[in-house]
Structures are given as structure tokens and as C-alpha cells.
């Protein structure tokens, strides 16, 4: 099956890889079926055969850093190395079929600036949500985008337009919720695209399982950082009203400031 984009648009994929020798080849094989000008694999802190496996694949640009860059920094580094019109972000540990990835490219080619993976179908009832999903939905709602629900650039796959990358800045992608907040506040077209189940299929690591694990706290912190950024721009209530609450009558003063 052939996947095509409008001729005037170029596309690239950024894939961040640590120790993923089991999955990296399959991930790259799927990417090679897509109409991509660049495939940029940011291989960092790897101690297994991931680098060798990636080097076997033709048509892949490899960025190799011996030290681990930390969460999502690879995305920022990779995004800074392409000037394609559409950039698709995937992870090295999660092979996704080309047919499931193409809709993200298509969405951006049709005018979306940020095309998110819609994880809503996998979350179920709110009383069973984890903390991280709650904070994701809260930040979207606070920014006036309740319709985005618990969908976040923290989750892959997602795709960005050139306009989004230039507005947000590639560096910001290292803290994905902060990038998302910046995109929303800049009035970019942030949309949910289609659903790829990354929850069930994500590789289980010691740090990302169980409630209150390290990665959950990292993502929580990312969202608080996103709120902090937004508040520096829009004020501590993000423009939401206080009405005629007579705080002075109770001895209080105005809304507090961050920092």
C-alpha cells in the first residue's frame, strides 16, 4: 500500500531510542513505509545493541549520544535537526503500524498544527483514572481546551506542523506538556487525531509501573511546569474571573502570584 502526502509538503520522523534493540528494527521498518524525507533516530545512553541495529537500516539518520539525555530530550534534539513541514514523533520501544501512523501525517497536511493520539477510548471511567490522566485533562481544561480531554504530547505518536515547531521552539519539546500549553496559548490548531493504544502495549519498566512511580511524578511535574509557564503569561487564574469576591472584607488581598 502506498502512502502519499501532497507534493509540496515534506515529512520527517523523530524517534528517540535508549535500550530498545528488541523493537527498534520493527519501528524503523514501519517508518520506512511512510513518505518521509528524514528518519532521525536519537540514540542516547544505550548499552545494548540498539545502535548497531539502527545502523543496519538504510535511510536512517542516526544521532548518537553516549549518555542518556533524560525523558523526552531526544525528541527536542531530533526535532532541531530537520526542517521538514511535518514531523512525526514516535518511541523506539513501541512499534506502530504505518497504517496507524499515516493519519497523523495526513491530519497535519490538512491543517492541524498538533495532531495528538486520542487515548480516551483506553481510559475508561474517571474514577479509575490515574493521577497523570487527571492532571492532563485538568491542564487542557484550564487552557480552555476541554475537548482535548486527557490527550497530551507526552504520549506518542503525535505529529507537529512546521508552524508549530517554529512557534513553540524545538527545545520546548523536551517538556511535552509545556510545548502543548505553548501551542494552545499561541492559538495553534491543536487536535486529537486517532487512537493508537499505547497504554496496554507500552513496555513495562520498574520506573513506570504502579501508582506514584517516578515517571508518573515526572509527568505530573511536567504538567505543573506547563501551568507555571501559562501563568507567567496569563496570570495565576489564567484569565478566569474572581467576580465580585470581596476579599478585602475578609482581610485578604488579591490573587497570589507564582514564584
Amino acid at each position: 500500500m502506498d502512502y502519499v502526502l501532497p507534493e509540496h509538503l515534506s515529512a520527517a520522523a523523530v524517534i528517540s531510542v535508549q535500550n530498545e534493540e528488541q523493537t527498534i528494527v520493527r519501528v524503523l521498518q514501519e517508518l520506512r513505509k511512510l513518505p518521509l524525507r528524514d528518519i532521525i533516530a536519537v540514540i542516547n545512553g544505550t548499552t545494548d545493541g540498539s545502535l548497531a541495529a539502527a545502523m543496519e537500516m538504510p535511510g536512517v539518520t542516526i544521532v548518537h549520544m553516549p549518555e542518556p539525555l533524560g525523558h523526552d530530550v531526544g525528541r527536542a534534539v531530533g526535532a532541531g535537526m530537520t526542517d521538514a513541514d511535518i514531523v512525526l514523533f514516535v518511541d523506539g520501544d513501541l512499534p506502530v503500524a504505518a497504517s496507524d501512523l499515516m493519519p497523523f501525517l495526513t491530519a497535519v497536511s490538512k491543517g492541524a498544527d498538533v495532531a495528538l493520539n486520542d487515548i480516551s477510548p483506553y481510559l475508561g471511567r474517571f474514577d479509575r483514572w490515574d493521577d497523570v490522566s487527571m492532571i492532563k485533562a485538568f491542564v487542557n481544561t484550564a487552557l480552555g481546551r476541554k475537548s482535548l480531554r486527557a490527550n497530551s504530547m507526552t504520549s506518542v505518536p503525535h505529529a507537529l506542523s512546521r508552524k508549530a515547531l517554529d512557534t513553540i521552539g524545538a527545545g520546548r519539546l523536551a517538556v511535552p506538556p509545556a510545548a502543548q500549553a505553548a501551542a494552545i496559548l499561541a492559538g495553534l490548531n491543536v487536535t486529537v487525531c486517532c487512537s493508537v493504544d499505547v497504554i496496554k502495549r507500552n513496555r513495562v519498566r520498574s520506573t513506570n509501573t504502579g501508582k506514584g512511580n517516578d515517571v508518573a511524578r515526572l509527568i505530573m511535574g511536567d504538567h505543573i511546569e506547563a501551568l507555571c509557564d501559562a501563568m507567567e503569561q496569563e496570570g495565576p487564574r489564567l484569565g478566569l474571573p474572581d467576580f465580585v469576591r470581596r476579599r478585602h472584607a475578609a482581610g485578604g488581598d488579591g490573587p497570589c502570584r507564582t514564584g
Binding site: 534534539v77 524545538a170 523536551a174 515526572l218 511535574g221 511536567d222 501551568l227 501563568m231 502570584r257
Partner: peptide
Amino acid sequence: LIGQRGRRGGCTDLLRKRQYCEV
């Protein structure tokens, strides 16, 4: 909360090396 606990509300950044992404 941010005022009390910092930009990330006191949450970990794990090993994120921000010098590579100018954030």
C-alpha cells in the same frame, strides 16, 4: 503550590539533561 514547591511543584525531573535542549 508552585510558589511553595517550585516550577515543577516539587516533582522529579529524573535525569533530564536540559542543557541539550535550551529549556
